[in-house]
């Protein structure tokens, strides 16, 4: 039994609040018990509170599988790129370094790569992945296209990503503005982009930081 085609994974990093619930839930998954495979990434921790959850995007042409010298990574018919098969993985690290999304993890002590397999033990029997089950802000949402359209009228999902000259299409979708002209996310061109809410980066002394914190406190007080 595979993952039903009508159920899709939608990621909206903008909604991530960095609570780490997904990380805790991920390590409960039966296919990699005790090891969280999701990355809860701080974009620029010193300057911004922006965080994002990074799961495997399940590429249509997975670079990790192509560069694997041991044929250890397989993409099943339902479009899920499975974690490295244990008897074959030789811990070479090629997949970790080649994945354009930076997803696979190398467990050096186990001599094995492990990555998000969309909680295959759950999704293959119609359940939601662990992370999407617990995400309080629905930055990670697993459901049908109709459900996400109802929930996010201002957003639409895309599945194309640009890395230099390379275009990668994925099974997992990312949310972008509905009204915009964005057809794909040019990831490499974000090299010099500033994090969202990057106001702290403009301050170069603690006085500025204090001002910002005070302003935030006052704003909150006024709302109350």
């Amino acid at each position: 039994m595979g993952v039903p085609e009508k159920l899709e994974f939608f990621v909206d990093p903008n909604r991530c609040i960095g609570c780490q619930a997904c990380v805790q839930a991920c390590s409960e998954c039966d296919t990699h018990r005790g090891y969280p495979m999701i990355h809860l990434e701080y974009v620029d921790r010193a300057a911004s509170v922006q965080t994002l959850p990074v799961i495997c995007m399940h590429c249509d042409q997975p670079t990790c599988a192509e560069v694997c010298p041991a044929d250890a990574i397989k993409r099943t018919e339902d479009g899920v790129v499975q974690s490295a098969r244990k008897p074959r993985c030789i811990a070479c690290n090629n997949c970790v370094l080649a994945c354009p999304f930076g997803v696979p993890r190398m467990q050096s002590d186990l001599m094995m790569m492990m990555k998000c397999d969309m909680c295959y033990d759950r999704t293959s029997i119609g359940k939601k992945p662990m992370c999407a089950t617990v995400c309080p802000s629905q930055a990670l949402f697993y459901g049908t296209r109709e459900e996400i359209e109802l929930l996010r009228p201002r957003s639409r999902p895309i599945d194309r990503f640009q890395f230099g000259r390379q275009t990668i299409t994925t099974r997992v979708k990312m949310m972008v503005p509905r009204t915009g002209r964005v057809e794909y996310l040019d990831v490499a061109s974000a090299m010099h982009s500033e994090p969202i809410g990057n106001r702290l980066a403009a301050t170069d002394d603690s006085e500025g930081l204090d001002d910002l914190m005070f302003a935030a406190y006052e704003e909150g007080d006024a709302q109350r």
Binding site: D12, N14, V43, T51, V54, A98, V103, F163, D186, S193
Partner: peptide
């Protein structure tokens, strides 16, 4: 793109999506 570390690749994904908004 291979000259960018995996951690920065993840950050770039967030930055690219944030920029779209």
């Amino acid at each position: 793109y291979q000259r960018i570390c995996p951690r920065c690749r993840r950050a770039l994904l967030g930055l690219a999506q944030g920029s779209a908004w």
